[in-house]
Design a protein around this nucleic acid. Structure first.
Lengths: 158, 158
DNA sequence: TCAATGTAGTTGAGTGTTCAAGTATTCCGT
DNA sequence: ACGGAATACTTGAACACTCAACTACATTGA
């Protein structure tokens, strides 16, 4: 099957999108690294844990919750454990499992980092889009996420 | 100033967006790594060079063109040079400068990688959104990119 | 002309991510 | 009950990126 290339407007849209994504991610990482000493991915891990009952989650849940690989989470938790922000504990019901548990220090670090992060998110995304634009962005994002998951499944099952 | 937290719909939109971004970037990297042996960032470097007159660009232009830091591009070009896909050459007009030049092998590698990449972009983004959605995504992206650049400038000048 | 300042690019150390391979445990079918 | 397959998680090596420091050249202004 011959490749169906992108039309001009499609290509422009794609580039605008992917460029903005790179800029935004770098900005988020830079802000959190400078002000809170952690990359954005780590911040998201702390957020998930802080919202979980008992501030603890199975490693796999943490991975799916943050759209990450198990390996990534495993390494990240190791790092966060070294800083005293997370503890590991064995899982009751499944002896293969581990829970990651947010410590009080971790919660404090998250609480300290949150205002600056939210300010950045507002300054770069939420406050520069109209409500309708933000909704449209969310809709498109859901469609994209679903498509990525679908195509990953496709690849997996052959 | 007390932090102005995100409203519920704002937070949902933000999470949908940032989750989809992570999924998509990982998918793009995985596809290109598997099929073409390079990460997405390297692919974009080759694309920029392929479109430039004489297939060559100053390092700094390459950096701004790919929304990257100079350091990132410098490391990447070193790596791509080792694979024979890029060559460096001194710049005529400014003896501090370097041009990155896409080799024929590099162009061939890009040509080989392009169909698979475009297919992924279609399957995950372009073909799953309506024309209107894609336009909306592009608009939002432009606003985001502008805001990121503006806030970076803000930080820089103090 | 010359010193000060700015710009272009590189480098190395430290950090984060991926990939493949590993261990340990649980699940499933017979 | 038991052997094979699946699941949960970790690990180490290779790779990519960041940050700060560095060299080299250019520009500015007195």
């Amino acid at each position: 099957m011959p490749t169906k290339w992108l039309s001009k407007p499609q290509q422009q849209a794609w580039r605008a999108y992917i460029d903005s994504v790179r800029l935004l991610q770098d900005a988020l990482d830079a802000q959190l690294q400078a002000d809170a000493g952690m990359p954005h991915a780590y911040y998201e891990i702390l957020v998930r844990l802080s919202e979980a009952p008992g501030r603890r989650l199975r490693m796999a849940e943490l991975a799916t919750g943050t759209q990450s690989s198990r390996s990534r989470v495993s390494h990240a938790v190791t790092r966060l454990e070294q800083r005293g922000w997370i503890r590991r504990e064995p899982c009751e019901s499944d002896r293969r499992g581990q829970n990651a548990l947010l410590t009080d220090e971790g919660f404090a670090a998250l609480a300290a980092a949150a205002p600056g992060h939210v300010a950045t998110v507002r300054a770069t995304v939420v406050d520069v889009l109209s409500a309708a634009q933000l909704r449209a962005l969310a809709d498109a994002s859901c469609a994209i996420a679903a498509a990525v998951r679908a195509s990953a499944e496709h690849d997996g099952r052959e």
